[in-house]
Design a protein around this nucleic acid. Sequence first.
DNA 1: ACAATAGTGTCTCTTAGACAATATCGA
DNA 2: TCGATATTGTCTAAGAGACACTATTGT
Lengths: 229, 229
Amino acid sequence: MSSIICTIDVVLMTLKNSVLHVALLKRDHAPFVGVLALPGGYIHAEDDVDTRDAAERTLREKAGIVSPYLEQLATFSGRARDPRGWSLSVVYYALVPNDVIAAASHLEVVLMPIDKVRGLPFDHQKIIETAVRRVRDKSAYSSLPVYLCGELFTLPQLQGVYEAILGEPINKVSFRRKIEELDMLEAVEGAMETGKAHRPAQLYRLKPRYSQHLSLTDRALNAKSLTSH
Amino acid sequence: MSSIICTIDVVLMTLKNSVLHVALLKRDHAPFVGVLALPGGYIHAEDDVDTRDAAERTLREKAGIVSPYLEQLATFSGRARDPRGWSLSVVYYALVPNDVIAAASHLEVVLMPIDKVRGLPFDHQKIIETAVRRVRDKSAYSSLPVYLCGELFTLPQLQGVYEAILGEPINKVSFRRKIEELDMLEAVEGAMETGKAHRPAQLYRLKPRYSQHLSLTDRALNAKSLTSH
DNA sequence: ACAATAGTGTCTCTTAGACAATATCGA
DNA sequence: TCGATATTGTCTAAGAGACACTATTGT
C-alpha cells in the first residue's frame, strides 16, 4: 500500500540584479546524480515533526540557510514524475535576500534566473513555474516582497523589488500610499542611506509582528497580472 | 523510510439556506470508525494517476459526486495528527450546488453548517477552517462562487451567493459591474426565471471556457476580508 | 392598480496615477 | 552651485457605492 515515495522540495528564490533567481543544487543521490535540481529530499518520519520541518531541515542542511519566509506551495504527485515510481513531493517556497545566499554559500548553490531555467529533472520546471506565479500573484496584494530585502531598506529600494517582481513600473505616489496603508514598516530613527550623491533616503524595517506574516491589501498594486488560475 | 501514511481528504462544500455547509461522512475504517469526518482515504498508487485523481475517486465512491470544481487546498502532515503514526494528507476542496448533493445522496452524506462543525477526528477541524478561509478569500476576487449555483441562475441569485460567502451585503450596481468585468457569464436567450410575483430575472450560465477555471479581478468585491495570512 | 423585485441611469465620494514642487546629499 | 534622487503636495481621472427611476410580473 504505502509504496509511495514521500519527499519535500524547496523553491528558494532571491532577487539578483533585479531579476528573480531560483537556487539549484547538484543532486547527490540517484536518480539524476549530479544534475541541477531543486533542493529536496525524503521526509524523515523519525526526525521531522511535519513537512514544514522537513523543508526547514533541507534548507539548513543543503543550502545552509534559515529563511525568513517559508510557505507551502502545493503538493505534486503521480506515477510519472519520478522514475522510481509513484511519488509525492510537498513543495515549499522561500524568499531570502540575495546576501543571505551569498553568505551561506559554503555550499554550491547555483542561482539561475527564472527565465533561464531548463532541463531540470522530475517536474521541477513546472514546480518552479507554479512558485513564480504564486510569488507574482501574492506580491500584488501583500508585503511578500519585503522578504527579498535585507533587514533595513529604503522605500525606493523596496519599490524596485516590487517592480522587478511585477514586471512593470509602479507609480511612486501610489506605491508609498499603499505601503503606508499596509502599515507593516517602521522607520528606523535617524538611519539614512548614505554615500549617494543625492538626498539620502530613510531606512525602514519590517514591524516585528509581521515576521513570517504578510500584510494584505484588497486592491492590487498594479493593474494586470490577471492570469486565469 | 516510507512508513508514512499517505492519504487524501476532500472538503466538499455547498450552500444550503444561504449558509456554507461541509459534507461529512461516517468513517468506515479504523481509527474513529463511525465518527463523522471528511471524506478521504488512502492514495491508491496502483489505480490513482495522482492525488487529484485520488480525490475525484474518493468523491465518486464515497459521496457519489463529480464536482464541477476541485482544487488542491494544502497538505497537512506530521507525527501527531493520526494515532497510527506519521501521516500526510493532501487535501482538496470542492464546491457543488446543493441539489447535486441532494440528488447523489443515496449515501449518508451529512451536511454541517461550517460554524457548527465540532468534534472531528484528526486535524479535520483545522482543515475545514483553512478551506473556508480559502473559499472566502478567493470569492472576493473571482468567479469561484458560481460553482455553488446550478447550471442556470439569475444575477440576484448569484449576488446572494456572494453575500452569503463574504458575509456582508454587496452593492447591486457594483456587483453587476464586477460580474460584467469578469466576463464569465452568458445570458441564456429567452430564458427567464418565472413564477415570482415580480419582474422576471434573466437566466445566465457560465461561459464554457470557464469550466473548472476562474475569472479573476484585481479589486475585491467587498472591502474587508483582510486576514493577516 | 398594487406589491415586489429586476434592471438602469446618474451623482458623489474615494482612490489611483500624473505632474510638479521642494529637500538634501556628493561632487 | 549642479546633478541626482528622495519626499511631499496637488490636480485629474477612473471606479465604487448610494439613490432613485423605470420595467415587468403575479395577485
